[in-house]
Amino acid sequence: MNLDFTEKYTLENDLVLLRPLELSDFDHLLEYAENEPEIWAFNAGGPGGKENLVKYLDNAIKQRDLKSEYPFIVFDKVSQKYVGSTRFYAIFLNNKTLEIGYTWYGKQYQGTGINKNCKYLLLEFAFEQLGMERVGFRANSLNNRSIAAMKSIGCIEEGILRNFSTDAQGNRMDAIVLSIIRNEWFDSVKQNLKNKIRK
Rank of each mutant, 00 (worst) to 15 (best):
M1I: 03
N2T: 09
L3W: 00
L3C: 00
L3I: 04
L3G: 05
D4V: 02
Y9C: 04
Y9G: 03
E12T: 03
N13H: 08
N13W: 00
D14V: 01
L17M: 09
L17D: 00
L18I: 02
P20W: 02
S24G: 10
F26Y: 15
H28D: 10
L30W: 03
E34T: 13
N35K: 15
N35L: 08
N35D: 13
N35V: 03
P37G: 10
I39E: 04
F42N: 11
F42W: 12
N43T: 14
A44E: 12
G45T: 06
G45W: 01
G46C: 07
P47T: 04
P47A: 05
P47Y: 07
P47I: 05
G48T: 06
G48R: 08
G49T: 09
E51Y: 08
E51K: 14
V54D: 12
K55T: 13
K55D: 13
D58K: 15
A60R: 07
A60V: 05
I61V: 15
I61E: 09
D65S: 13
K67L: 07
S68A: 11
S68D: 10
E69V: 01
Y70N: 03
P71K: 07
I73C: 11
D76P: 10
V78Q: 15
S79A: 14
S79E: 14
S79H: 12
Q80K: 15
Y82S: 11
V83L: 10
S85K: 11
S85W: 04
T86N: 12
F88D: 03
F88H: 03
F88K: 01
F88S: 02
F88P: 03
Y89M: 09
I91P: 00
F92Q: 13
L93C: 06
N95Q: 13
K96D: 07
T97H: 07
L98D: 02
G101K: 05
G101V: 04
W104A: 05
Q108V: 11
T112C: 01
K116R: 13
C118I: 08
K119A: 04
K119T: 03
L122K: 04
L122Q: 09
L123H: 03
E124F: 00
E124Q: 12
E124A: 06
F125T: 02
E128W: 01
E128K: 05
Q129D: 08
G131L: 06
G131M: 00
G136D: 04
G136P: 06
F137A: 01
R138V: 09
A139P: 05
L142Q: 15
S146T: 13
A149H: 09
M150N: 10
K151P: 09
K151N: 10
K151C: 07
S152K: 15
I153K: 03
C155K: 06
E157Q: 15
E157A: 09
G159S: 11
I160R: 12
L161N: 11
N163V: 02
F164H: 15
T166F: 15
D167Y: 05
D167Q: 10
A168W: 07
Q169M: 09
G170Y: 10
N171T: 12
R172T: 14
R172I: 10
A175H: 15
V177I: 11
S179R: 02
I181S: 10
N183Y: 09
N183K: 12
W185P: 00
S188T: 13
S188M: 12
V189T: 14
V189K: 02
V189H: 08
K190G: 04
K194R: 09
N195V: 06
K196W: 01
I197S: 06
R198D: 13
R198W: 08
R198L: 13
K199R: 14
